[in-house]
């Protein structure tokens, strides 16, 4: 019964995608690396509790856009971002915004699994510790269990929480990284090709996980695999040469795209 209703809710969500409120709004976003312009006035909005997939050929700017959403581009020396990006109506590039707080609200999972060379437990508790979410051991224990459960890793690692996170398999490491991101209770999770270093079975697990995470988090995922975009996302945005070509419901995007270039890319004519 519960399952039914959940499925029903999901279906309703899928059908009425256009009515879901926006979580993040990007307006005229341009990114420059020195003199080179990498993004051209991108207008792209991210809907709440939705998986938004960013697709496009290599070097099209999809990862660059993703990294503007939690200001990871700030760490690149000569990178400059113009335009406006808001998170729940707050400008994230506002001088008053603390990037530490922003990244606590907008978490990130990277292409290559990158657990810290510490224990599984320490990997998960690092975020909560630096953000002051928990101090007591009991609280931390609870966060670790919840996060690992959300990442579908609890049953596999609960007996070896104090072994190094780097000793896990690639897929487990990536789910550990997701658990680490989840542990600070972000609102948005950015994923930069999270499955590109994983085998098909691990990929399937992570995709399933993304599907589940959607109920609690807003997810933006960059992927090279169009099948993956079709499987996990409700909205898809297609980038080409730094421009946003098309943004649409995933179903429509992969059956009847508005733009010829999307059609060509999906059909494998370029990219």
């Amino acid at each position: 019964m519960n399952m039914m209703s959940e499925a029903a809710v999901e279906k309703a969500l899928d059908q009425k995608m256009t009515t879901v409120p926006y979580k993040m709004i990007g307006k005229d976003v341009s990114v420059y690396y020195g003199d080179k312009r990498a993004l051209f006035d991108v207008n792209l909005n991210v809907r709440e509790n939705t998986v938004t997939a960013l697709i496009g050929p290599s070097g099209c700017g999809k990862s660059t856009f993703l990294r503007t959403l939690n200001r990871m581009n700030d760490t690149i020396d000569n990178c400059r971002v113009t335009g406006k990006i808001t998170l729940d109506d707050g400008d994230i590039y506002d001088a008053k915004i603390d990037v530490v707080e922003l990244r606590a609200r907008v978490g990130m999972v990277f292409q290559k699994p990158n657990p810290f060379p510490k224990s599984i437990y320490e990997n998960v508790t690092y975020g909560p510790k630096i953000h002051g979410l928990a101090r007591a051991k009991a609280e931390l224990d609870q966060i670790v269990e919840q996060s690992l459960q959300k990442a579908g890793l609890w049953n596999e690692v609960k007996d070896r929480l104090h072994e190094p996170g780097t000793g896990l398999s690639g897929g487990q490491q990536q789910r550990l990284c997701i658990a680490r991101a989840v542990a600070v209770s972000p609102e948005v999770i950015l994923m930069d090709e999270p499955c590109s270093a994983l085998d098909p079975i691990a990929t399937a697990k992570v995709e399933e996980l993304i599907h589940e995470l959607r109920t609690n988090f807003t997810i933006v995922i960059v992927t090279h695999s169009m099948q993956q975009a079709a499987r996990v996302s409700q909205r898809t945005a297609m980038f080409h040469l730094g421009n946003l070509v098309e943004e649409n419901d995933t179903d429509k995007m992969f059956t009847n795209p508005d733009d010829q270039r999307t059609q060509d890319y999906i059909m494998g004519r370029f990219g």
Partner: peptide, 23 residues
């Protein structure tokens, strides 16, 4: 030290100094 470790810490909201001294 691989840049991925820095990205991981920064992505979690660690400051530059925390990233350097913790990881």
């Amino acid at each position: 030290v691989p840049p991925s470790i820095r990205s991981a810490a920064l992505g979690l909201g660690a400051s530059k100094m925390q990233t350097i001294f913790h990881h």
